[in-house]
């Protein structure tokens, strides 16, 4: 009886997952068609600028591809080495100070555009990582370590240090607020 319930639940979960994936892909395709439409419309109005936009997009794709490959590798590594229980323990509701520390440090150290990290974070979330930590990770990404020397040269050491400290604090506060606001989502 227990086993039949388990298999029925598993089939249901997989059905829902597949449905979710199909919806995600359909929404993505609609969005892609809209963007292609904008490019066609823009090309009619200004061919040179549209060509430049296309070149810029290819440049972005070139930059994010290696980061995306790293993210895919990390996702596979996380899923094969760390089980759901461990993710819940380190990033779940009872993760405490350690969870905040992991979110803030990994946010500061992560490279590339934020959207490259979306797949991995949504995977962690589905395995039990809580929303507050994901929000804290995203905001801590506002500290761009490789660009700090340039920021200092433009705005000074005092400004950069104060801003960096406030960003970390804001990431933590936003994470706490998110946990409170989205706590009842179940």
């Amino acid at each position: 009886m227990g086993y039949s319930n388990y298999f029925r639940d598993t089939i249901l979960i997989n059905k829902n997952k597949n449905k979710g994936k199909k919806t995600q892909q359909r929404t993505g395709l609609i969005m892609l068609i809209i963007v292609i439409g904008i490019y066609i419309f823009s090309a009619i109005l200004n061919l040179t600028a549209t060509y430049n936009a296309l070149l810029n997009s290819f440049q972005v794709l070139k930059v994010i591809t290696p980061i995306l490959l790293v993210v895919i590798f990390l996702m596979a590594l996380l899923n094969s080495l760390i089980n759901q229980k461990k993710i819940s323990k380190h990033l779940g509701h009872n993760s405490g100070v350690k969870g905040w520390f992991i979110a803030l440090v990994s946010g500061v150290l992560s490279h590339g555009p934020g959207y490259v990290w979306y797949p991995m974070l949504s995977e962690l979330r589905s395995h039990g990582a809580r929303d507050g930590l994901i929000v804290a990770f995203f905001y801590a990404r506002a500290i761009k370590l490789p660009w700090l020397p340039m920021m200092i040269s433009y705005f000074g050491l005092a400004f950069t240090s104060i801003l960096t400290l406030y960003i970390l604090l804001a990431a933590l506060v936003q994470g706490i607020i998110t946990d409170k606001l989205l706590a009842e989502k179940g």
Binding site: L32, I38, Y39, V60, I64
Partner: peptide, 9 residues
């Protein structure tokens, strides 16, 4: 790809 296309625009 849609997001990357928008970034270029």
């Amino acid at each position: 790809l849609a997001v990357i296309g928008m970034v270029g625009l």
